[in-house]
């Protein structure tokens, strides 16, 4: 099966909204119709054909050859199929995804995986701020699925996370897991200050303890069986994160400013 390939002609002059280019939304369109889809975001929007050379193929596997920081909302609300990007993307990559797989070889912008509910997202490079976070006004961030970021995440990764598993390999910025509702964030690199600010529930696992608020309390090191499950689940997808999870961990309970039922875990 040959994938449907979008080859970038040149850097677009405006931000693109690529939410229309998912397997489900393209399944019934001819390639000529696809080329006519408006994907620009200004009053004179670019069309697919202006930005990409198209090579027709199986609509359930979509490949972007060449990326841009102006590729927004790639794989938004995707339910099944595969999207692969050879390059970088902009904002809201995989936002609201429900299933399928999104693989980005390069970096992603802010709000990657925002509100995702399922599926697998892999970002080869760094991602911006607010990984998995809700968009303005929405109440919940990532709500399911598995996200792997091979590089670093920006500030407030997994803000308002509700469910799911996010593993970031090289580190994260400040306020990781802010206002977390639940879910699991594993960061296998250095993490900025005040992780878990106002978290209600949820788990943030880090290789070392950064500056934390006094509303997190040391609960000591006790074996926690569940980390082994996560290690097994992540073993193939992120050996680095799996290794961290297999270590003996020390638990800090908080944030007692709010409900106080979350936890920060670091090697004992």
């Amino acid at each position: 099966m040959k994938p449907l390939v979008f080859t970038l002609r040149s850097e677009p002059v405006e931000r693109l909204d690529l939410s229309a280019l998912t397997p489900a939304r393209l399944s019934d369109l001819s390639s000529a119709a696809i080329e006519k889809l408006a994907i620009g975001t200004t009053q004179r929007p670019l069309r697919v054909g202006d930005v990409f050379r198209l090579r027709d193929g199986d609509r359930s596997v979509i490949r972007f050859s060449g990326g841009s920081s102006r590729f927004d909302r790639i794989a938004m609300a995707m339910e099944s199929g595969v999207i692969e990007v050879d390059g970088m993307v902009g904002r809201e990559a995989g936002c609201g995804m429900r299933g399928g797989a999104l693989t980005i070889s390069g970096a992603a912008g802010d709000y990657a995986a925002s509100g995702a509910r399922g599926g697998a997202i892999e970002i080869g490079g760094d991602c911006g701020d607010f990984l998995g976070a809700p968009l303005v006004g929405e109440m919940e961030g990532i709500n399911g699925g598995v996200v792997i970021v091979r590089g670093r995440a920006g500030h407030r990764a997994c803000d308002r996370m509700r469910r799911g598993l996010v593993a970031v390999e090289k580190g994260a910025g400040e306020y990781a897991g802010s206002r977390m509702i639940a879910g699991t964030l594993v960061v296998a690199g250095p993490v900025g200050g005040f992780p878990g600010t106002m978290m209600r529930r949820g788990t943030i696992i880090m290789p070392a303890l950064p500056e934390i608020a006094p509303t997190f309390l040391d609960c000591g090191a006790t074996p926690l069986g569940f980390t082994a499950l996560y290690a097994t689940s992540l073993a193939a997808r992120s050996p680095r994160a799996a290794r961290l999870l297999r270590r003996a961990l020390r638990r800090f309970g908080g944030d007692t400013a709010t409900l106080g039922k979350g936890e920060l875990l670091v090697p004992a």
Partner: peptide, 14 residues
């Protein structure tokens, strides 16, 4: 502010 909030609701702080 978080510490005050925790104590106002009777939760512990360090």
């Amino acid at each position: 502010i978080g510490m005050i909030r925790a104590r106002a609701m009777g939760r512990p702080i360090k």
